[in-house]
């Protein structure tokens, strides 16, 4: 069997290179901030810090699973082993040079994490997993370069804002005002959890990333940044995919030698 070498994303632009980088699990995301485990639990709002994980079934060891070759191949995640509930974290990424786009979240997440279910909408990306697995994944999603405190929102509901202009402090609109800009500290602070329940104490998530830096690390094409129009390789790749799908849909024999 020929050795498989993943090709994560086509394109000759810096944006395409960033996409490749984030999708590639061998690239270690740069850690920029520390959010304590307890604060992360508060932000997500699924349990109180220190509270035991609720379970939906007994631990797999006690459950007595049937003989199954797939079960022998696939090692259950810690959360699955323990029988944790499936819970979520959901992000909204502004169109204004946020590090990730919704599809990037999915592509990246599926390459980097096991046992996650990621949905993609234009204005929100839910990631679901067993609760203890989720907390581990969420930590990386919030502490590293792919999270910008101002242009990425942790929002379980009422996500409206990804396409709106930024406010006077450069923050993305949030009807629930879960996060605010603390002018004295120059940091973004969450005062409500992801579904809008007020927090017992604020959680600081750091300074907004400077615009210049965002433009370098973003995976978004924009005409006022790096224009998609200029990435000919990527455009031709998409056109080819479309042509192959169309031709094959009409007559699969037509694409044999293409």
């Amino acid at each position: 069997m020929v050795e498989y070498k993943p090709q994560y994303y086509p394109g000759g632009s810096n944006v395409a290179a960033n996409r490749r980088k984030y999708i590639d699990p061998n690239y270690k995301l740069r850690k920029l901030r520390t959010i304590s485990d307890d604060d992360l639990v508060r932000l997500m709002g699924h349990r109180v810090p220190g509270e035991a994980y609720k379970s939906v079934h007994p631990p797999l060891e006690e459950l007595g699973e049937p003989t199954c070759p797939i079960r022998e191949i696939v090692e259950p995640t810690p959360g699955a082993k323990a029988g944790d509930r499936i819970r979520y974290i959901q992000f909204t990424d502004s169109v204004y040079f946020a590090p990730l786009t919704p599809y990037m979240r999915a592509w990246m997440g599926h390459m980097r994490y096991r046992g996650v279910d990621i949905g993609v909408l234009s204005g929100r990306v839910p990631l679901e997993a067993r609760e203890r697995d989720l907390e581990k994944v969420a930590k990386e999603l919030v502490e590293t370069e792919i999270f910008d405190p101002a242009r990425v929102g942790i929002r379980g509901a009422t996500v409206h804002g990804h396409a709106l202009r930024l406010d006077e402090n450069g923050l993305m609109f949030d009807a629930l005002r879960r996060f605010q800009y603390d002018k004295n500290k120059g940091e973004v602070v969450y005062v409500k959890d992801q579904v809008g329940v007020p927090l017992d104490r604020p959680i600081y998530v750091g300074k907004p990333t400077p615009e210049e830096e965002l433009r370098k690390i973003t995976s978004q094409f924009r005409v006022d940044g790096e224009a998609f129009r200029n990435d000919k390789e990527l455009i031709e790749f998409v056109q080819r995919i479309h042509m192959l799908r169309t031709e094959a849909g009409f007559d699969p024999n037509k694409v044999k030698d293409l």
Binding site: V95, T101, L234, I241
Partner: peptide
């Protein structure tokens, strides 16, 4: 398809 790749969202 182009839109999805350009914006990274649809």
């Amino acid at each position: 398809l182009l839109h999805k790749e350009e914006m990274g969202r649809l």
